[in-house]
Design a protein around this nucleic acid. Structure first.
Lengths: 165, 165
DNA sequence: CTTCGTGCAAAACCTTTGCATTAAA
DNA sequence: TTTAATGCAAAGGTTTTGCACGAAG
C-alpha cells in the first residue's frame, strides 16, 4: 500500500500523519502526537482499549480521552499508519502498517497465538487471481487458522480444563 | 474444514447439526430447526440481524427470539455449517460453510460489493507456507481489497442526472 | 423426570456523537 | 481570529446473560 518505508528518506510516523492531516485541512494536535508516539512505542498488536489503558498509566499528564483515541485511530488507519489485521479472539486488532514489512498471520485455534509470516508468492498469486476477475487489487488480508507448532506437540504440558467431575 | 459436501452420502444441514449437538449432549429443538431452515433457504451473506428480520416476517408462527438466533448462529459456526467471511462495510457477515465450495472474496473499496472467487493454487500455497512455519492449517480467510470491474470503468459510464446543455 | 433451551428484559460492551470549551494555524 | 479538536457524558447499536418457565430425550 505504501512503500515509503523502503525509501532512503523515510519520514517518521508523526510526520507522515501531519502530512496526511494537512491534505485534509486538519491539525496535528498535542493529543494526536501523544497517541502516535504511544502507538509506535512498540510493535505489538493492540485494540483501542489496550492503548487507552497504556495512555492512562502515564504520569506525565500527557493523557488523552477515550473519544480522542477512537477518533485518532480511525484517522491513522486512513492515513496508512495502521491497519486492522486479524481476530485472535473474535475481535480485531490493529498493527503498524508503516515502516513494517508486508506479512500475513497464522492464528492458532488452540492457544490463540498470532504468528506473523512473510511470503511474497502468495501476494503475487492473489494479485493474479484478482486480475483474472477484472479486479484491481490494492491490498489483502489473509488469516490462516490451524494449530501452531507448540500446540501440536503431544506433551501434557498444556493446561487441561477439567470437564468431568 | 469439512469435506462432507463432496461425499456421495452428503447429509442435510439439519442432520449435520443434530449430529453435532448430540456429541455435545445438546438437543435439536424446534427453534434450531427453524433457524437452520431459514439460513439454508438462500445462499446470500447475512448478519444476525438480517436473519432475525427474515424470521420476524414469517406468518406461520415459527418465530424465534433474538437471543436464540444469536445462540444458534454461534453453535452453527462451531458445527461447521457457517463461517464468518468478510467485512464489506466493516461488519462481518456469515455464509454457508457446508455444501458450498471453498472460495475467497474480493471486496470493492468503491462500491462495497463482495465478489466470490475460487482459486485452488492459493489454498495450496497458503498451506505450504503454513507448514514451513510448523503450523498445521485447518482453514483460512482471505479478503482481497481493491476496485471491481464496474468501478474501474471510465467515469462517463456512470449515470448522470443532468446532461449539460 | 431431568436437563437443556427459550423468551424476556436487563445488562454488558464497545463505539460514536452532541455540545460547550480549548487550542491550532 | 477562525475553525477544528477535545473531553465529557449521554446515546447507540449489537451481543450476552440471569432467570423462570416450557420442552426434548
Amino acid at each position: 500500500m505504501n512503500d515509503l518505508s523502503t525509501l532512503p528518506t523515510a519520514i517518521s510516523p508523526a510526520e507522515k500523519f501531519r502530512e496526511y492531516l494537512v491534505t485534509k485541512g486538519q491539525r496535528m494536535t498535542r493529543e494526536r502526537d501523544i497517541i502516535v508516539e504511544e502507538v509506535f512505542a512498540n510493535h505489538e498488536h493492540f485494540e483501542p482499549d489496550d492503548l487507552i489503558e497504556r495512555l492512562g498509566h502515564r504520569t506525565d499528564g500527557r493523557r488523552v480521552s477515550r473519544s480522542t483515541v477512537y477518533r485518532t485511530l480511525t484517522s491513522m488507519e486512513e492515513c496508512g499508519l495502521l491497519r486492522k489485521v486479524a481476530r485472535p479472539n473474535g475481535r480485531e486488532v490493529y498493527e503498524h502498517d508503516y515502516g513494517y514489512p508486508q506479512h500475513d498471520h497464522l492464528i492458532c485455534d488452540t492457544c490463540g497465538k498470532l504468528i506473523e509470516f512473510q511470503n511474497e508468492s502468495i501476494g503475487r498469486e492473489i494479485e493474479e487471481a484478482a486480475k483474472q476477475m477484472g479486479f484491481l487489487k490494492s491490498g489483502h488480508r489473509l488469516e490462516v487458522y490451524g494449530t501452531c507448532e507448540d500446540c501440536r506437540r503431544p506433551k501434557q504440558r498444556r493446561f487441561r480444563k477439567l470437564d468431568m467431575i
